[in-house]
Design a protein around this nucleic acid. Structure first.
Lengths: 188, 188
DNA sequence: AGAATCATGTAAGGGGTTACATGATTGA
DNA sequence: TCAATCATGTAACCCCTTACATGATTCT
């Protein structure tokens, strides 16, 4: 049971439809989890069946109807229980790192290209997260918000996400530079 | 096929038995992937069957016999092919972040405790990785090693792992402090 | 005497990815 | 007219985790 609690936690911020959640999880607004639309629809169905969330139908004219979900009391209890259970250590699993690990034995060119792509993607996400953070904290500065702003949880996870992207970006640029310099020296 | 290439990349550094690989992957020397022993044994069997690695039996007296694996030519070709294919973006999936996301709605105490644990674990891993980095670079300083040291790949992934742990540590300490301060102010 | 290390596997089940399926509206 | 957005699902498959299984040696 993994995605389960991520969805519950996400739904604490308000009512969302499957589609809206999917966007958040996919684009990566979810700085605490990632999931695909299909999995979310499935999980939402299960969560509703288990009484941890409840959905209400919203009829729309111009658009297809949608169902908005809210966390029930039972859902909050389940989250509280989950919070006391101990959790697995976080770990890295990244295709690109595998490629870099092997870079002494394979052609570096495609790896460098992908490092550049990643760096660009990370930069875009950093901008996005900065906007989101500013929005979350309103007219307070960060220190003040951390002392008494609400909601704190989403702000903290967003900070972590921002930090992660920043580091990722720095590393990609560094690695690409190192690899490019070596290629240059070898050819000269 | 995900673990497959991670194992291949790991085996480029030398001959390893399933058990030795498992330790590396589990303890987290693998800064590019994580896997459990059982999965590794399974994957090694498959890789050998596919001719991407070859194992040789090593008979031992005092210890059980073991099989050491090496990447074959076919394995290197497969890795090169993998390196040119485009890869999935890396993402975060962390139970603890889910708990922090929900912290406005649940008891903060257990979350704070787990943040402390994580911070301590991260600190330990940072020390470990620092030792590993020093070992990898020998008597060269970092800049020099990055310019012409070998092997470069493992050093770069290790740097990324170190950086990740560092950030993780910083964030955990920060989040725990913020949550503790709020608990204090609320009670006073 | 018990725990830890070395050493390798099998089997069941759950979680996640990919592919398939549908259909109306809006903007380029 | 083509792509994108809104909106929700099903089915197959693969990957990964957890639990089970064995057994000798070394250290505390």
């Amino acid at each position: 049971m993994a995605l389960r609690h991520a969805v519950l936690a996400a739904l604490l911020s308000g009512e969302y439809s499957g589609y809206q959640l999917a966007k958040a999880f996919d684009v990566g607004v979810a700085n605490f989890w990632y999931a695909q639309p299909q999995q979310l629809y499935l999980e939402l169905t299960k969560l509703e069946k288990d009484g941890l969330i409840s959905g209400r139908q919203v009829v729309q004219e111009a658009r297809p109807n949608k169902r908005l979900f809210t966390v029930t009391e039972a859902g909050k209890v389940e989250l509280a229980r989950f919070a006391t259970a101990d959790c697995k250590p976080s770990f890295i699993r990244d295709d690109l790192l595998v490629k870099v690990q092997a870079v002494d034995h394979i052609d570096a060119a495609p790896v460098i290209a992908q490092l550049d792509d990643r760096a660009a993607a990370a930069a875009a996400k950093i901008e996005f997260l900065d906007r989101l953070l500013r929005q979350l904290r309103g007219d307070l500065d960060e220190e003040t918000f951390l002392r008494r702003g609400e909601p704190l949880g989403p702000y903290l996870t967003c900070l972590r996400g921002r930090q992660f992207e920043q580091e990722h970006h720095t590393w990609c640029v560094r690695a690409a530079t190192v690899l490019r310099d070596r290629a240059k020296n070898r050819s000269s």
